[in-house]
Simulated scan of single mutants.
Amino acid sequence: MNYKRLETFVWVASLGNFRKAAERLHTTQPAISARIAGLEQELGVKLFEREGGSSPIILTPKGKELLPYAEKILYQSAQLRKQADVSTTYSGVLRLGVSETIVNTWLPDFLAQLHKNMSKLNVELTVDNTSSLAEGIKERTLDLAFLMGPISEPYIVNRELCTFSLSWVASPTLELPDRLLYLEELAAWPIVTYARSTKPYIEIVQKFRELEGAPVNFFASTSLAACLSLAVNAVGISTMPNVMIKKELADGKLRRLRAMWTPSDLSFTASYSDTPYNPIAEVATSLAVASAKKYETEHLDKNN
């Protein structure tokens, strides 16, 4: 039985849409339609109800009955390849979403290991904030994401990657006192922080809203590089991952501040949908875990 037809059947059933299935399988809608028609002819049954327009594609009763068998065949095929240790035969495109903190730490090592283990695999890299990456995983426009997780959905696999601690930092030109600082003292300047939809932003805003006095100004950005630049140029006070500010601290462009409260550590996960079964994301995740642990062993203790 034709593997591509079974794979197409599973993806159309999961996404409920021929166009989305075509994008996921890197082909055209006519090719998807032809594969489904060929499978229906081969099996002698109708698998989908096609209502047309923007209506989702719906499985027929027989399609619902046969879907678990197709999923099992794809899963066992992937397991056979894994047991045969032929990971280099993995090909196609991995749509990878990454938080900027990971880009600036262990991502290069991961991509090198990925190419070494799956040399026929192409990578489409998206760097974005966690909320956008999580949405991409849920909508299956991304195959795998390294983000501030986990994603709480029953069909999403989350594996722990790494944890980065944060520090308050400011330009020495702001001349803040060299002692333990109250948040009210920090609030005299704009607070430069993560994008609005992120966990650090929400945590910081809630904490500063508890303070008495005038409202605090927040400069939120989706770019950590922009946050770093604003802090270095004395625009405001920022919280930054310790792993990203080594050079600026050593060069005297920033100084670490001691404050009464510091936001929680950033915990990252590798997250992907396992419905349908996603062998490339599974293998890539294992490589990511190894790269993250290697980085933590080699660098993290030096950054704190």
Rank of each mutant, 00 (worst) to 15 (best):
R81H: 08
E51A: 14
I57G: 03
T222G: 09
L107E: 10
P200G: 00
L66F: 09
L80K: 10
D265C: 01
V127M: 13
L67E: 01
N303R: 09
P276M: 06
S14I: 00
M1G: 15
T8W: 01
D251S: 15
R179E: 11
I204A: 06
S197R: 09
I58K: 15
L287D: 08
S54A: 13
L144C: 05
I73Q: 08
M260E: 15
S273A: 12
K116G: 04
R19K: 10
W189G: 00
T222L: 04
K64D: 06
R50P: 03
Y69I: 11
R159N: 10
V12I: 08
E185A: 09
S119Q: 12
S87Y: 11
P172D: 06
A31D: 03
K207T: 09
I73E: 07
E51T: 13
E135D: 12
L67Q: 01
E248Y: 11
L94H: 02
G53F: 11
S54T: 15
E296Q: 14
S99T: 12
I102M: 08
S221N: 14
L125N: 04
H26I: 07
P108T: 08
S14Q: 04
A259I: 02
S165P: 01
T262E: 15
T126D: 00
Q206I: 00
S14H: 08
E23T: 07
S119C: 14
V283C: 08
G236V: 02
A288W: 09
S171A: 12
T105I: 06
V103A: 03
E160Y: 13
L47H: 08
I202A: 14
E71C: 03
S223C: 10
E42R: 12
G213T: 08
V157Y: 03
S119W: 14
S132W: 00
D128G: 09
A188L: 12
K82Y: 14
L121W: 13
E210T: 07
I36S: 05
S273Q: 07
A37M: 09
L94I: 11
I73R: 02
C162H: 03
H26M: 12
N122F: 08
Y90A: 05
A288Q: 04
T193Q: 06
R24N: 03
Q113C: 05
G92E: 09
V289R: 10
T262S: 15
Q206W: 02
V157Q: 14
L166E: 13
V192K: 12
T269R: 05
A220F: 06
Q29L: 09
Q79W: 03
A259V: 13
G38T: 02
N304S: 11
N122A: 09
T126K: 11
I245N: 05
A134M: 15
Q79D: 09
C162K: 03
L287M: 11
W11M: 05
S167F: 00
H299E: 15
L230P: 01
N217G: 01
N217Q: 11
S55C: 02
L254R: 07
S54H: 15
L47K: 02
P56G: 05
E124Y: 12
T297L: 04
